[in-house]
Design a binder for these strands. Structure first.
Length: 859
RNA sequence: GCCCGGGUGGCGGAAUGGUAGACGCUUCGGACUUAAAAUCCGAUUUCCGCAAGGAAGUGUCGGUUCGAGUCCGGCCCCGGGCACCA
């Protein structure tokens, strides 16, 4: 297997060992019950046409080092790779060229796979997965059906951007200033039927589950902030028109109830119309029209001035019976709380700003305990005591909060409430290139019959929507009918009615559907015989790209299973990843969605754990040479291919790890690669002689000095510890220190040389295999067990102790280990560099850290 | 605005409260060479000094400590996240 080259010829060495590994497969994960398991996972990539970016191999190298190290330590390692292959770029390419997105996707995968393999990563390629493979998305669809039957998937009218000119739905980022980015046509908000997943039902568990996972704190905080739990109360205000019932608001500050001087409804609030008096009708209508045309971005732009309109109606404060005006303003959000607030301008920044603009009353009801004589500037949002609050005056705000909520509750006007910023997950896309949603739409009677046949597949409440006066009901495909594959289409362009290109495929969309088998025939043909055949229309929305990545880590444990998404044995064996490495850009969405699905799977007994990712790590971004983010337009992009060609995969791997801490954002330095490359060449020249075999200075009979052995064992320990702690840069430094020392030795024992090559192997695996063979060692560097570290070797007989006078370094001395304080003081007094600083002074205090430092404090 | 993370030589970075700058890059000097590259040896925080040596020094100001890059408080700058969530 070993190559013939005399010098370090990585062009020859790397492909040779890669093909050797492909034959011997040291990367294959087993089911060995004796060995402990370790599952280390990279976030799988979207195989873009641009190919691998230098940021990809950064994280992949780190996990590969860990995988190889763990194998050497006797672990059964699962280290897989796959493709998050559904995605918008492939669809856009298909729209342009008319070729099927799958063709382009497979080409890109081919290129990605080639590039990744060129880096020598020890992935178990038998377990490769592809989210666009029907054998994979069959189970994505299956999980959707589990969500559906548990009532966690529903349809709802949701506002989207509609461009009448282009007859298509546009994404938020495709709309600029109320016009389409492409074509500059006017766009409008239109409510379209969308699938939504009830992630909010898991809000509490998604929040509490964060406590038990080993994640970066910043990521946990981000998720917690995204979920945004807040506790408060719902309070009902009376309305003058009793027929309308009450006006319910959510507040976290019920203690400020006496300071409520007006109320605000979101423009979309159900009572907005009913509360508008005839005199205000015109102004309100104009305001609502204007609000409807604003994008979310425009509405949430903090820089803009708050706007609103008076409805003409009044509500009654349940605490003091005060009559307060009801306004409509778009600074109140419709999707949060009840979509209405009690405004307390004295103690809320936003209300204060609005009240100032419209001349509304401001009533302070909280005062800080140490209020300045002139009173506080409003709005005051801090701690304090109640004033002007009837019977509650004088109470601390925390106590008042409790008492007022309780008192109102006893009159039925209030109840404690919890709200979340987290919204349900908009799960449908009007796209072709995604997993089809395995649902057909039928009439009421057909739905009820289908449900009777198989009640377990339906949610408690039927999922339905109304269109053109007809109500349609959702019927799931039987699980046995999965996967539901994408039909061929003439054009990948959206249908023009706000639906995906799938809507144009009449013989696929309009069908006779067999509720028993899930079989379908075009509705244009005759109805097949049998009571289970019903007239149906298929769902034409597809799933978002997040779907496939929500559970892929589970599929790796048992990737070719066609009976289940993974067997219980495989799931028990591997569980979730022991380590998950990927970019911080997924801190919220991917990681939150995957946790949600995992918890649902846990609830139905399909997975044994409640949390999918127990330990998470984010690699930092690699910037261009200029310190800017790498981008084509800046021309500072570094391709792994180029570096492999010029310096080899091992040098690239080493350099990516040597650049700095894995989690740090750091610039690429083209000269730095030379440094690690030189290091490898230096090791080569010290191990391989001119004849291409073991270097003459390496011998079995060589007795290494204690200093060399100490350094070797220190290195074995430090490299192992550093890999575990993911401090790869310092591990490499330590190996360089060892190499520098070995280089100076006239002779080195073979066992020391081999141990060194062993610790280098996870970092530079091709190089290590080659040198290992050249040294005439049996077996392979990749399968040899990790060298043993001997603690006795690490402690030297002598240590350098530092002498300080008044905390300043004044000299040092090599002394025997375990030197006593008295002896150290003696030596310090006698030390030629220290003595002058002690002359004529008395020692006031002695600080002695054994084997390290002696600090003499003198007056 | 709020919440995080970070400021260390010419550069990337290293330092359980205990010799600041390991390791690498760069640069300079030397060896080898007809020469160059490669390689090898040495130097490379700043200031003063021929030198021995001394002084200052981890964004900034202050504090705790025998001792602070490290801990505490204020400020400045950079990066990331959130952003009318009542």
């Amino acid at each position: 297997m070993v190559t013939e080259s005399k010098d370090y010829d990585f062009h020859e060495i790397e492909p040779r060992w890669q093909s050797f590994w492909e034959r011997t497969r040291p990367d294959r994960a087993g089911m060995d019950p004796v060995r402990p398991k370790f599952y280390v996972l990279d976030m799988f990539p979207y195989p873009s046409g641009a190919g691998l970016h230098i940021g990809h191999p950064e994280g992949y190298t780190a996990t590969d080092i860990i995988a190889r190290y763990r194998r050497a330590r006797g672990f059964d390692v699962l280290h897989p790779m796959g493709w998050d292959a559904f995605g918008l770029p492939a669809e856009q390419h298909a729209v342009k060229t008319g070729t099927h997105p799958a063709a382009n996707t497979q080409n890109n995968i081919l290129n990605f796979r080639r590039q990744i393999k060129a880096l020598g990563f020890s992935y178990d390629w038998d377990r490769e997965i592809d989210t666009t493979d029907p054998r994979y998305f069959r189970w994505t669809q299956w999980i959707f059906l589990q969500l559906f039957k548990r009532g966690l998937a529903y349809v709802d009218e949701r506002p989207v951007w509609w461009c009448p000119e282009m007859r298509t739905v546009l994404a938020n980022e495709e709309v600029v200033d109320g016009r389409s980015e492409v074509g500059n046509f006017p766009v409008e908000r239109r409510s379209l039927r969308q699938w939504v997943l009830r992630i909010t039902a898991y809000a509490d568990r998604l929040l509490s589950g964060l406590e038990g996972v080993d994640w970066p704190d910043s990521t946990k905080r981000m998720q917690a902030a995204w979920i945004g739990r807040s506790e408060g109360a719902e309070i009902v205000f009376g309305l003058e028109d009793g027929a309308l019932g009450g006006l319910k608001v959510f507040t976290t500050r019920p203690d400020t109830l006496y300071g409520c001087t007006y109320m605000v409804l979101a423009p979309e609030h159900a009572l907005a119309q009913a509360l508008t008096t005839p005199g205000q009708r015109e102004a309100v209508d104009a305001y609502l029209r204007q609000a409807a045309s604003k994008s979310d971005l425009e509405r949430t732009d903090l820089a803009k001035e708050k706007t609103g309109v008076f409805t003409g109606s009044y509500a009654v404060n349940p605490a003091n019976g005060a009559r307060v005006p009801v306004w409509i303003a778009d600074y109140v959000l419709t999707g949060y709380g009840t979509g209405a607030i009690m405004a307390v301008p004295a103690h809320d920044e936003r209300d204060h700003e609005f009240a100032g603009r419209y001349g509304l009353q401001v009533e302070a009801v909280i005062e800080p305990v140490d209020a300045p004589p002139g009173g506080v500037t409003l709005p005051y949002t801090g701690d304090g005591r109640l004033v002007r609050s009837g019977p509650y005056t004088g109470l601390g705000w925390q106590e008042a909060k409790q008492r007022m909520t309780d008192d109102l509750a006893s009159r039925g006007a209030s109840r404690p409430a919890v709200n979340y910023k987290l919204r349900d997950w908009l799960f449908s896309r009007q796209r072709y290139w995604g997993e089809p949603i395995p649902i057909v739409w039928v009439g009421r009677a057909d739905h009820d019959r289908a449900r009777e046949r198989d009640p377990g597949s339906f949610p408690a409440e039927p999922v339905s929507f109304e269109q053109d006066g007809v109500t349609r009901y959702a019927v799931p495909l039987p699980e046995s009918a999965l996967p539901l594959e994408l039909p061929p289409v003439q054009s990948y362009l959206p249908s023009g009615t706000g639906e995906s290109a799938l809507a144009n495929v009449a013989e696929w969309v309009d069908i006779w559907h067999d509720c028993g088998s899930g079989k379908a025939v075009p509705a244009s043909g005759p109805r097949p015989a049998g009571a289970s055949w019903v007239r149906a229309r298929r769902e034409t929305n597809t799933m978002p790209q997040w779907a496939g990545s929500c559970w892929y880590y589970l599929r790796y444990t048992d990737p070719s299973n066609d009976q289940a998404f993974a067997s219980p044995e495989a799931l028990r064996r591997w569980g979730g990843p022991d380590l998950y490495v990927g970019g911080a850009e997924h801190a919220v969405l991917h990681l939150l969605y995957a946790r949600f699905w995992h918890k649902v799977l846990f609830d139905i007994g399909a997975v044994p754990t409640d949390e999918p990712f127990t330990k998470l790590f984010h690699q930092g971004i690699i910037l261009g040479e200029d310190g800017e983010k790498m981008s084509k337009s800046r021309g500072n992009v570094v391709s792994p291919d180029t570096i492999i060609e010029s310096h080899g995969a091992d040098s690239l791997r080493l350099f990516l790890m040597f650049l700095g801490p894995l989690e740090a954002m750091k610039p690429w330095n083209p000269r730095g690669i030379e440094g690690v490359h030189r290091f490898l060449q230096k090791v080569w020249r010290d191990c391989v002689g001119e004849d291409g075999r073991a270097h003459p200075k390496v011998g079995d009979s060589v007795q290494d000095s204690n200093e060399i052995l100490r350094l070797l064992h220190e290195t074995i320990k430090k490299v192992g510890d550093d890999i575990d702690a993911m401090r790869f840069n310092t591990a490499i430094s330590q190996m360089m220190i060892l190499e520098n020392a070995l280089h100076k030795e006239p002779a080195v024992s073979r066992s020391t040389a081999l141990a060194f090559i062993q610790v280098l192997a996870p970092f530079a695996p091709h190089f290590a295999e080659e040198v290992w063979s050249r040294l005439g060692a049996p077996g392979n560097a990749s399968t040899a067990p990790w060298p043993k570290f001997d603690p006795a070797r690490v402690s030297a007989a002598e240590v350098r102790i530092v002498f300080q006078v008044n905390g300043k370094h004044r000299g040092d001395l090599l002394v025997p280990l375990g030197l006593t304080q008295d002896r150290a003081v003696e030596l310090a007094r006698a030390h030629e560099k220290v003595a002058p600083f002690l002359a004529g002074k008395s020692i006031a205090k002695v600080v002695f850290v054994p084997n390290r430092i002696l600090n003499l404090v003198v007056s």
